[in-house]
């Protein structure tokens, strides 16, 4: 069985160019020209405006590329006083918490003692209850 080669196809396609060409419908030209006459050509923009458009578009693309590609500029260092202020505030907060928790701890210790006493009493008198 014969197979077509690339050269065969090339010849077929080239030959098709020499084959009888299809003709368009006879009234096509009239239809086209009627439609064209109703259309208005767009006004020709001056070269300067055309170039300005391209220049603006190029500038916008360049600006976008700069924003995307370049690394963000680093923020300047904060003043030293500010960096010291933070631990100081932390220390103050902790001190306040300690002051608040100290009486609570005393109360807890006292309650624990009471509980232990009550337990001893109960254990001592258990047989008689």
């Amino acid at each position: 069985m014969n197979r077509y080669s690339t050269d065969d196809l090339e010849q077929l396609l080239s030959k098709s160019r020499q084959a009888p060409r299809a003709s368009p419908p006879v009234d096509l030209h009239g239809d086209i020209m009627r439609a064209v006459r109703q259309a208005q050509p767009e006004p020709q923009r001056p070269v300067v405006i055309r170039n300005l458009g391209w220049a603006l578009a190029s500038a916008a693309i360049l600006a976008l590329a700069v924003v995307i590609v370049l690394p963000p500029r680093q923020q300047p260092h904060e003043p030293v006083a500010l960096s010291v202020e933070e631990p100081l505030n932390t220390a103050r907060t902790l001190a306040q918490q300690l002051r608040t928790s100290a009486p609570l701890q005393d109360e807890a210790t006292s309650l624990a003692d009471d509980a232990r006493t009550a337990a001893d009493f109960l254990l001592a008198n258990l047989p008689s209850i």
Binding site: A22, P25, L28, D31, I32, A35, V36, E42, P43, Q44
Partner: peptide
């Protein structure tokens, strides 16, 4: 017309598209 007809295979589409192309070309000739 031949180019469009060869692709679409429809006479009506080929007419319409040929006409559309010429009108677009005329409008955008600038």
């Amino acid at each position: 017309y031949r180019f469009v007809f060869a692709r679409t295979g429809h006479d009506t589409d080929a007419r319409d598209l040929t006409q559309t192309a010429f009108v677009a070309a005329y409008r955008g000739i600038s």
